[in-house]
Design a protein around this nucleic acid. Structure first.
Lengths: 190, 190, 190, 190
DNA sequence: GATGAATGAGTGTTCATTCAT
DNA sequence: CATGAATGAACACTCATTCAT
């Protein structure tokens, strides 16, 4: 008996991400993905229940990998502003090294089939950041408003900015990112 | 292909928007749309070159309608903050009255086929707002940073917030919107 | 606009019957049927909702045609035995001229997907025969047992016999049929 | 391929019968059957050449088991009618205790792949009954017609009746069976 | 101008079978 | 002997688009 092949699964994951980047989610057919991975479409169904499962699983994988990466990058603890600054930097660093993964999760998360992923499960991996924000509010460094609002101004401009940069050629202008972070910080700081 | 029968074209537009809202962009087939509009699929091709043209044209139509609506709502001219506050209010007013149109443009703009729309043409309709920002920078009321950055913090949290509110039942909490605007303003003000 | 084509529908019906006869129900794929009919598989879906609908509709068509044929063949009214004898003869006459249709309904009716056909609707077309049996019981010519039992001994040996004859080369031996009818009549007569 | 592991083979047989009963012949895939038997699909191919062989072999097994059962039940030898009456009773007794096996052979025997079973081999196991009929004809108790005809009126109504009873809930009404036998006997007796 | 019929190309998925272990 | 992984071929069905009327 041949063993379920780590290499094949990896091929499947990167083929899925690449296909979605090239053709868009809607045009990413199972057969396109399988062909790019060098597998038969039937093989895909050994590793994933169906197409939805394939996409959602990879989405979860990438998101978790990303959140782990970012959290590990945060070393400074002197001030909240510095921590969030590191967080922004880490994010752009990750994105610039994983453009395809990032574009994949952006496409997937704005598609309706995203609704099936376990949001609760997802949330767990962002708890450290949620904790930082709570602390900041308690210490009076951050505005005492709805937690979601803080996250909104911390992340949504970041994501849109990163997406735009990738779409427009892919250069990540550090100066612009720094400026953007200042705006973000000004929006949430007390 | 245009200017055939105003009524049929309108039916087509609202059928498209409704179908995309119900089934998602990926599952919105030409025949579904035509059926909902009470037309034959073939008739659709009299009014639009192909499916892409249909979606992109409606996207442009809705975006322009939205920008016109917003610009007309701005009456106050005393201070820039008040103007932008009105702009936010107008935006949420429009969105709450045109949920389907809004969700349509959100879905379309995060799909890859959005790339074909004429961005230059689009930009023209947002010139009044661009003008306001330029003025604000000149007068020293707004940070002297890249124009795109100002727009980013003015609009991207707004759009994400509106989308979330619609997804979570549809209630538009005015207090939250006001708070959100304060964060937005704090991010761009000097 | 091209009109829905009587000829194409007929082609579809006879292609379905022929394919089921050649390959068996289970191996009769939509594409095989369409190819034999000289049509694209997609065209089939203009005429029938899906594969089940195709098979069930044709089953109903053939059954109704068969029952009409048989009922029209009954002219004699002198004695019940003669009527039933005519019925047997008519049946074998129909079957020998419509071997493929007969084998098709035999295969379909012993398959599980037969369950979806409207049995009530079907029953209506056999009411004349049901009436004859009821009369026979009243007049004391036929045993006063469950109606289903009479039908069972009138029809099930007939069908099995016809099927066997077709399977074994296709010759319809009249003498054997006459003998068989005598057995059938002996089983139900008082 | 045979004589490997008695237990596994038995598991395979009952899994096949159960699957065919649950899903129908057409939807009974090799992997479904293997899973129900607690085996790998590959293992199945150690015991049987292919799917057809699996089904045909089991069909033969069940038919032989059934004929053995029935023949062993016949004890009485006073009159041919009593013998055949016992035969009917034995048949219904077997069927009511082995509904799944019976439905399996019914489904299989009306499918075209049934044609591959060795009819000669099959016939052997029914020789005792053939003998009884021949005797009856000689003694003048049974009509002197084609042997197949006698079998037809002895068995085909019986099988159809049993199938209907199982389909309609599964109750075996003894009175109806007795009546049916009387009709069967009347059809063949001299 | 308007249409339903028509279709080649494609969809996601399952199949019976074989292979490497 | 036994197996889970692997697959080419097939499955039922839908698609965007065109054509004849």
């Amino acid at each position: 008996m041949r063993m379920k092949d780590e290499i094949k699964q990896r091929a499947l994951i990167s083929a899925t991400i690449a296909t979605v980047n090239e053709s868009g989610l809607a045009s990413s057919s199972v057969s396109k993905i399988a062909k790019k991975a060098g597998l038969s479409p039937a093989t895909l169904y050994i590793y994933y229940k169906d197409k939805e499962d394939l996409l959602a699983s990879i989405y979860m994988d990438v998101k978790i990998e990303m959140s782990n990466y970012i959290i590990n990058e945060i070393t400074e603890e002197s001030s909240l502003k510095k921590i969030f600054s590191q967080l922004w930097k880490a994010m752009f660093k990750y994105i610039s090294c994983h453009r395809e993964e990032f574009m994949f999760i952006e496409q997937f998360s704005s598609s309706p089939c995203c609704d099936i992923v376990n949001k609760k499960e997802m949330e767990k991996h962002f708890e450290p950041i949620t904790g930082l924000i709570k602390d900041g509010i308690k210490k009076g460094e951050i505005k005492n408003v709805d937690m979601g609002l803080i996250k909104l101004f911390l992340f949504s401009p970041l994501m849109v900015l990163a997406k735009d940069m990738i779409k427009q050629g892919g250069e990540f202008k550090e100066k612009l990112i720094k400026e953007a972070f200042e705006l973000s910080w000004d929006s949430i700081k007390l």
